[in-house]
Design a binder for these strands. Structure first.
Lengths: 234, 234
DNA sequence: CGCTAATGTCACAAAACTGTCATACTTATA
DNA sequence: TATAAGTATGACAGTTTTGTGACATTAGCG
């Protein structure tokens, strides 16, 4: 459903191109960088879902880059697959040691690449969906995909669920329509911003019977926000 | 046929890597964690078949971790092999006392490791197959491969049985079609996801005459879930 | 071998979910 | 207060996701 954004970091253009070409499927959006510096800039601005990293980079080695990235709170969870021409066991160990999630030895097939990406994503995605979010009377159980008011369950469609989950994970903060689109629909969706309005409306409609309609607040000119604090009456 | 997923918990990277590398066989899927917290998260989300646990962990000791895990209904049956550098008898006793299933003293050979894992699994699998799962009127006796509603037996095919067993062992939680395929068919099966739908349908059909059709719930866009709690209409 | 049960896939029907529009309503501000 | 910009809301049509029955293939068994 949602696309996976892949960042390919390699200084050799043919390899970058080959990989990007191999990933020309509707599921993937492929970006690339040719140096550690450029890569870090893209990571910060785009936060890819997964990184394919060459062992040998001009300035810093892939290992060092991995190690560096693992120290950054914000990016330590991005899975990294290391690409290398060497096949020595020793290197593999170093790779895992630095914190990479998988390892592919060149040359590799398109098939293998896709399979590894899939496996790594499955592994890392499933581990972060344990949280239970709560605000006011509302509880969202991320792993069993449930939303409760008090202890009666309420039903939401997939989009509504994702929206609410996102907002509950970032309460009190305002998000613009385009930010919400990016986060929930994915960056490459050509969806009208007004669509967000409609979904917010639907969410409120479901929450209203429980007097929780006010939880979702409109910030005129800016976007929406989930907040437990009641707007003060004038 | 089905792979064994191993969770390696150790704060020293070289050791984790060594073990993961040693277990690079088609029979094993190896995951790792470097702290008790991370380990617990992975256990919850992935439910490994066996745990290799270092005696010394940064925040909690391996013993404490074992003890903690043994208090959790859901995870108490996962066998644990303790890894340690000490060789004193005293420690071994403490380890077994806390509830671990075997004990390996570093350094150990790949061969020994594999042998111990095999032995422990054989031991615990046969005893775990005595478990009896229950939900609502439904009872599944794992050991004699029987499913009862009240006290009349109902017949399920092997796949249906495995599916139901898995869901009954993890009630309330939603599993995607691909997760179910991974868990029941094994990770490397090239089976259509729609196949899951058909099996769910067949399961429901069997349960329906006993008014248990609602037990299996569809979570649109996410997967399936077994739940005793009825979904409430608005 | 010839059965029967079990399994994986298909194709189509049924449901649920989405995105977009048109229109009504608010709010800010000149 | 008039006006324009920003939002809310109901309806609708197109898509996507599931449910269900049928069918071909396979596996196991007497």
């Amino acid at each position: 459903m949602m696309q996976t954004s892949v960042l390919v970091i390699d200084d050799e253009q043919p390899i970058r191109d080959m990989i990007c070409f191999a990933l020309r499927q509707p599921d993937f959006i492929c970006r690339h960088a040719e140096s550690a510096e450029q890569a870090y800039a893209r990571i910060c601005s785009e936060r890819p879902d997964i990184i394919l990293l060459d062992w040998m980079l001009p300035t810093a080695s892939g290992i060092d880059f991995t190690r560096m990235l693992r120290t950054k709170e914000l990016y330590r969870d991005i899975p990294i697959i290391m690409l290398t021409a060497r096949g020595e066991e020793n290197d593999k160990l170093k790779g895992f040691g630095a914190g990479c999630d998988d390892y592919i030895t060149k040359p590799f097939s398109t098939r293998e690449l896709a399979a590894r990406i899939g496996a790594v994503l499955k592994r890392t995605r499933s581990q972060k969906s344990r949280e239970i979010l709560t605000i006011d009377q509302l509880t969202l159980e991320s792993d069993n995909h449930r939303v409760l008011v008090g202890d009666t369950e309420i039903h939401l469609g997939p989009r509504e669920f994702e929206l609410l989950k996102f907002l509950m994970a970032h309460t009190e903060r305002v998000y613009s329509r385009s930010q919400l689109l990016d986060h929930i629909w994915g960056e490459a969706s050509y969806i009208e911003e007004r669509t967000i309005d409609v979904h917010m409306f639907r969410l409120r409609k479901v929450l209203k019977p429980y007097k929780l309609g006010r939880l979702i607040q409109t910030v005129r000119g800016a976007g929406y926000r989930l907040s437990a604090r009641k707007e003060r009456p004038v």
